[in-house]
């Protein structure tokens, strides 16, 4: 059997997850190319392919006109991976989903211009097509992606943790943001990243989305108990998890 053919596609996103692929360094990247064949990757190459073993789709589904392109990728690919937060959960793009006036706010009276045709909400790719696996995170963790690729190469379901980021902070003995007078969303955020943000001195913003059954009520209470104004506490988790909140 030849090497699996892999394609990368981008929708509404910053394309940072694709950029992360360039950050493996020489040895790891060249080794990766021994096991997969990158056949389509608009950002880095001009070639195109008919059939794909794995399609990695970056970016959110935000315009009805994108549905056809997504369906085309789905039709060509055996396995579809939503690649990064925007594709997997809507990511940062969904931060304005709860607003009803964002188009008018940004475009004024030109809001109905056909150029700006857009869904009201930024949605994960799976809102348009079936997604087999999700790579979480903003940006995605490039080593977790390697593990996922390894699993798929061996026909094994990739393991993605479903416990909160607190587990990983504690494992690396990071001081809790709350103990430093800050706030954090680590208690409701899905782990797997290794908790780099609190270790770097900033709160977790839950870029990998919520764990299954996040305790949103307790989150709001804890934030308020630690001095956050109520309105901010109520809206805090919108940054990366707006599509996953109970009020979404």
């Amino acid at each position: 059997m030849g090497k699996p053919k892999v394609g990368f596609f981008d929708f509404s996103s910053c394309e940072g997850c694709q950029i992360e692929l360039t950050n493996y360094g020489d040895a790891d990247f060249l080794e990766l190319l021994n096991h997969i064949e990158i056949v389509e990757f608009r950002e880095a190459m001009s070639e195109k392919a008919d059939h794909l073993d794995i399609a990695c789709i970056e970016g959110s589904f935000t315009r009805e006109s994108e549905r056809k392109r997504l369906e085309d990728i789905r039709a060509r690919a055996d396995v579809v991976i939503s690649f990064g937060a925007c594709a997997s959960t809507g990511g940062i793009n969904a931060l304005k989903n709860h607003q009803s006036d964002f188009k008018e706010y940004v475009y004024g009276k030109d809001a109905d211009s056909p150029h700006l045709q857009s869904n009201l909400k930024a949605l994960p790719v799976e809102a348009a097509i079936k997604v087999d696996y999700k790579v979480l995170g903003c940006p995605m963790d490039k080593y977790e992606f390697l593990n996922i690729v390894s699993s798929l190469l061996h026909g094994k379901t990739p393991y993605i943790p479903d416990y909160p980021v607190c587990v990983e902070c504690k494992r690396r003995e990071t001081i809790c943001r709350f103990d430093l007078g800050d706030h954090c969303l680590g208690m409701v955020a899905r782990a797997g990243c290794g908790a780099p943000c609190p270790a770097d001195g900033i709160p977790c913003e839950a870029c990998r989305g919520f764990v299954t059954n996040p305790n949103e009520d307790s989150l709001e209470k804890v934030l308020i108990d630690h001095g956050m104004p109520e309105e901010r506490a109520r809206t805090k988790s919108r940054m990366f998890t707006n599509t996953m909140r109970s009020d979404a």
Binding site: G59, T62, I92, N93, L95, K96, F102, K103, V106, R232
Partner: peptide, 21 residues
């Protein structure tokens, strides 16, 4: 390119969060 509405996103966010957005 698809529009992404960053201006609408940063409305109502704390000054410590804006650069992360």
């Amino acid at each position: 390119e698809s529009p992404r509405f960053f201006e609408a996103m940063i409305r109502g966010r704390h000054y410590t969060e804006v650069a992360r957005i």
